[in-house]
Design a binder for these strands. Structure first.
Lengths: 105, 105
DNA sequence: GTACATAGGTAGATCATCGACATATGTTGA
DNA sequence: TCAACATATGTCGATGATCTACCTATGTAC
């Protein structure tokens, strides 16, 4: 799972959101580091829908502007939880090895 | 940074290793989950060398078989440490959001 | 003598992301 | 008034990292 995908799922883990909201949320989650591109976002949303990790929650029209809300599925939450485990273990292992090498150098 | 790249840098963080050794090490680091392909490994090693994150440590000939050892550079260790921070924070944020959503459902 | 482990590598395909563009409305400021 | 920016959705072609499949070569196990 790459970072944009991770940020999209994490954004939706807090509750349903529409595309543009995901972009701003992903910026906050990554502490301003990542600005999701619309090309990345909307193709990723289609892909994740196809994989069953997210689904359309509802569609609203606010001031003539359409908003399509997405929500994370149980499968999506499982995939994200698995990714969290992978990241935690990977980070620990890498930190240990970096620390050992730095400590001996 | 994608997982194969992360595994290669983490494998080298413990000390210099040759290509085949990185493959077996990456398998252990990922707890058997990831088996690096040679196509991925050797193109990634070339790329990482070009980026200055790793460099050739030495070349040995053991029983007529060539072994090329790679080592992580200071820039590579910095990049890996930054990735570790990113993973830790990302995992925490995602876990919080998953936990909050699950707890309220 | 066949299969597997060790050791290196290339070439083409796939797939996610990126960059640029397109469309439309509301708001802010010169 | 009009230019720039925020909101909101999307497409298309290029890039880049990985994957699949293939190749060479030796040593060991069955």
């Amino acid at each position: 799972m790459q970072e944009p995908t991770f940020l999209i799922l994490t954004a939706l883990a807090a509750g349903p959101q529409h595309g543009y909201g995901i972009i701003t949320d992903a910026g906050e989650i990554s502490e301003g580091r990542v600005r999701l591109r619309t090309g990345t976002l909307y193709t990723a949303l289609d892909r994740l829908r196809g994989e069953g990790l997210i689904e359309v929650d509802r569609e609203e029209v606010v001031d003539t502007r359409m908003r399509r809300y997405y929500r994370i599925t149980a499968a999506g939450a499982d995939a994200l939880a698995a990714e969290v485990q992978r990241m935690r273990r990977g980070a620990e292992t890498a930190a240990l090895r970096l620390g050992a090498a730095g400590g001996l150098a």
